[in-house]
Each structure stands twice: as structure tokens, then as C-alpha cells.
């Protein structure tokens, strides 16, 4: 299995993501700069977190219009796995590869803390090593993580089982509708999530709850 990490100016979590992928797959992922119009062949493409283009205009808006995203869209259409974490999730929604949008946190503050996540759908390529209803610990660090979609979209994604992770009752850090923390597209091969599973993969992190996500994706690929 091969992975590629896409990097935009202003991201700051790519090193953690590269370390996690290397540690878990045993191979260094390729690293692709945003200006590239082709992506190397890989089974899993990851957009990590940070603040691409300083969050100018809207979080993820400018990155979502860069050449590499057109290439990513083609890879996703081929059925390759795509994972966006934090700013990566914002970029995937801005690119229209995932439904809805991430708005400013309801409390207006940047939140950096550990939350609890409930696995809502353990049948995706990203979550098959978890169990439905399992509660994970996972860190969040964001200013714009407030998931919003219109009522019809929300009904559709809930009905399709596209909500993969929810903040556990009482731990929603940002006002997301239905406590949504992570979703997949209808085909199930593109996932976005605000929490950072790459920061909980070895005991030195204080836990390994994020590890199974990468193991699932690597095995699926």
C-alpha cells in the first residue's frame, strides 16, 4: 500500500501525518506540492491540517481551487481513498468532494483539547478496525469546525450512513449540527474529519485510539 500527502502553503500538520503513515505502513508516503497538476499513483491520498493560505476568504477555499485538487478529484473518481483531516476536511468540502461546510466555531474560540468520538459507521474503508458505537479519545485543534449542511443534505447523509464520527454527548467543541465530527462521501472512499487521529497512534502520544483508522485504510487499500 502506498500513500501520498498533499501539502499546501500554510499547512502545519503534514509532518505528524507523514510520521503516522510511515510508522503504520512501514513506507514513507510521497509528498506532493499543491501546484502539481498530476498525482503519483497511490492507494491513499491525505490532506493534513493547518491553515492553507492563512484561511483567507474561507477556511480551505483557496486550496480547494488549486491544480492538485483537480487531480485529486480524478483519483477519487477512480475509487482511490482520500482522507482530509482538519484543514483537509475544510478543503474537501470547499472542493465539493464532501457535502456541507465547516463554519466558525459556535463559541468563536479556537479549541484545542481532547474530545470523545463515537464511531457511527464502522463499515467504511477508514473505520473497519473499529466497532460501531466504540468511543475514542481524539484531539481537536481548530477555529472553523462547526459542521453545517442544509436540512435536506443532513437528512440524506444521515440516512445513507455517511456520518462516520460524532462528538460524544456533551463534548461537541464547535456547535456542529448533529454533533458531526467526520463524514464520508456517498461512494465511501472520501472521508473528512476535524479531529486528529494522526496524533494518537503510539503510547508516547498518551494513547493509540487513532491507529485503527490508518490500519483500516491501509488494509482496504
Amino acid at each position: 500500500m502506498t500513500a501520498a500527502v498533499i501539502v499546501f502553503p500554510g499547512l502545519n500538520r503534514e509532518r505528524d501525518m507523514i510520521a503516522a503513515l510511515t510508522r503504520i505502513s512501514g513506507r514513507q508516503p510521497s509528498v506532493v506540492w499543491h501546484a502539481e497538476s498530476e498525482l503519483p499513483a497511490a492507494d491513499l491520498y491525505v490532506i493534513p491540517g493547518g491553515f492553507s493560505y492563512g484561511d483567507y476568504l474561507r477556511a480551505g477555499a483557496i486550496a480547494a481551487r488549486s491544480p492538485v485538487i483537480a487531480a485529486l478529484r480524478r483519483r477519487a473518481a477512480e475509487g482511490r481513498l482520500v482522507l482530509g483531516v482538519c484543514n483537509g476536511f475544510q478543503i474537501l468540502t470547499e472542493a465539493g468532494m464532501l457535502p456541507g461546510v465547516l463554519m466558525r466555531n459556535a463559541g468563536l474560540r479556537f479549541v484545542c483539547r481532547q474530545v470523545r468520538l463515537v464511531v457511527e459507521n464502522a463499515g467504511t474503508a477508514f473505520t473497519r478496525h473499529y466497532e460501531k458505537g466504540q468511543v475514542l479519545r481524539c484531539p481537536v485543534a481548530h477555529h472553523d469546525g462547526n459542521y453545517f449542511a442544509d436540512a435536506e443534505t443532513l437528512r440524506r447523509i444521515e440516512g445513507n450512513g455517511q456520518v462516520v464520527f460524532r462528538y460524544a454527548l456533551g463534548t461537541n467543541p464547535n456547535g456542529s449540527l448533529n454533533d458531526i465530527a467526520g463524514i464520508v462521501n456517498e461512494a465511501g472512499n472520501v472521508m473528512g474529519m476535524m479531529p486528529h487521529p494522526e496524533n494518537l497512534i503510539e503510547p508516547a502520544h498518551g494513547g493509540t485510539d487513532g491507529r485503527a483508522l490508518f490500519e483500516s485504510a491501509l488494509e482496504a487499500a
Partner: peptide, 9 residues
């Protein structure tokens, strides 16, 4: 449509 507004919101 393409950039300045996110027409979802």
C-alpha cells in the same frame, strides 16, 4: 459561484 461565495451557506 466558483470562489467568492460558498453557495451552501
Amino acid at each position: 459561484e466558483k470562489l467568492l461565495a460558498n453557495t451552501v451557506i
